[in-house]
C-alpha cells in the first residue's frame, strides 16, 4: 500500500510538472468566471432569467463533463500510457521494486485525482461566481444539490479514465492516442443522438448522469442501475487494461 501511494505521488508529480496540466487547471478555474458575463449579457439581451444563481454551478458542470474533463483525461492518459510506452521512459518505473499491478493502479489513481481536483476547482469557482447572478430559488438547496451533482459527476469521469487507459496502450505516441481518443469520444457522443437506445450501453452516454441527482425526480432504482452499469464497465475495463499493461514489453 505504501509503494502504491508513493507511485501515485510520482505520477501526480509528473502531471504537475507539465505545462499543459497547469494550463488546463487555469482554464478550469477561468471558465466559470469567463462564462459569467456571457450568461449575464444573454439574460439582459433577452430579458429572462435563464440561469439562476442556484443553477450556474450545474451549467458549468455540464460543460465540464461534456468537454473539458474528458479532454484533460484523454490528454493525461495519452501521456501516461502511450507517451511513456512510446519513448520508453516507463522503464524508469518498471525496473524498480514495484509490481506492474501497482504501477498501473498508481497511474489510474493519479488520473482520478486529476479529475477530482478539476471538478472541485470548477465547483468552487462556479459557486463563487454564481453570486453575481440573480437569485432564483433557495440558495442553500441549490448549492447542496450542486455539491451532490459534482460528487456524482466523478463516477463516469473515472470510468472514462479507465477506458482511456485501456485504449491509449494501443498507441506508441501520445499525440496519436489523443487524436483517436477525441475522435472516438466525439463519434460516440454523436451516435447517442442517432441511436439513443443502443448507445445506452456505452459508458460515455452517462457523462451527464449528475443531472439525475438534481431535483429528486429520478428513482433510486434507476440511479442504482446506472451506478452498477458504470461500476461494471469500470471493473471490466480495469481488468483488460491491467492485462495489456502487464504484457507490455518495453
Amino acid at each position: 500500500m505504501e509503494l502504491l501511494k508513493r507511485a501515485a505521488v510520482n505520477e501526480l508529480d509528473k502531471l504537475l510538472a507539465k505545462g499543459k496540466t497547469k494550463l488546463f487547471l487555469l482554464l478550469t478555474g477561468l471558465l466559470p468566471v469567463i462564462g459569467m458575463p456571457i450568461v449575464l449579457q444573454l439574460q439582459n439581451m433577452f430579458g429572462v432569467t435563464g440561469v439562476g444563481r442556484d443553477q450556474y454551478p450545474i451549467a458549468v458542470l455540464n460543460m465540464m463533463t461534456l468537454f473539458i474533463v474528458p479532454l484533460t483525461v484523454f490528454m493525461n492518459a495519452s501521456d501516461m500510457f502511450s507517451g511513456e510506452l512510446g519513448d520508453k521512459t516507463i522503464r524508469s518505473m518498471l525496473v524498480r521494486p514495484v509490481s506492474r499491478m501497482k504501477i498501473f493502479a498508481s497511474k489510474l489513481l493519479a488520473l482520478f485525482a486529476a479529475v477530482a481536483v478539476q471538478l472541485g476547482l470548477a465547483g468552487l469557482v462556479s459557486a463563487g461566481a454564481s453570486f453575481f447572478l440573480p437569485a432564483a430559488g433557495s440558495i442553500g438547496q441549490g448549492m447542496a444539490e450542486a455539491a451532490l451533482a459534482y460528487a456524482a459527476a466523478a463516477l463516469p469521469m473515472f470510468v472514462l479514465c479507465i477506458a482511456a487507459a485501456v485504449l491509449a496502450q494501443g498507441f506508441k505516441n501520445a499525440s496519436g492516442a489523443l487524436a483517436v481518443l477525441i475522435l472516438l469520444y466525439g463519434a460516440l457522443k454523436l451516435l447517442e443522438y442517432i441511436f439513443p437506445h443502443v448507445m445506452a450501453f456505452s459508458p460515455t452516454a452517462y457523462t451527464d448522469w449528475h443531472s439525475l441527482w438534481i431535483g429528486g425526480s429520478v428513482s433510486f432504482g434507476k440511479l442504482f442501475t446506472i451506478f452498477n452499469f458504470l461500476a461494471g464497465c469500470g471493473i471490466v475495463m480495469y481488468a483488460l487494461g491491467y492485462m495489456a499493461f502487464d504484457n507490455k514489453e518495453v
Binding site: A17, K88, R91, S92, R96, P97, V98
Partner: peptide
C-alpha cells in the same frame, strides 16, 4: 528487483524535469 539497479539501452529520463527531480521520483520507490 529490490537489490538491483538497471540501465537498459538509453536512460529512461523525463526530459521536462530536472536531473534531481528524476532521481527524486526513483528514490520515492525505496
Amino acid at each position: 528487483m529490490n537489490q538491483v539497479g538497471v540501465l537498459i539501452e538509453k536512460p529512461a529520463l523525463l526530459e521536462y524535469m530536472t536531473g534531481y527531480k528524476n532521481l527524486e521520483l526513483a528514490a520515492r520507490l525505496y
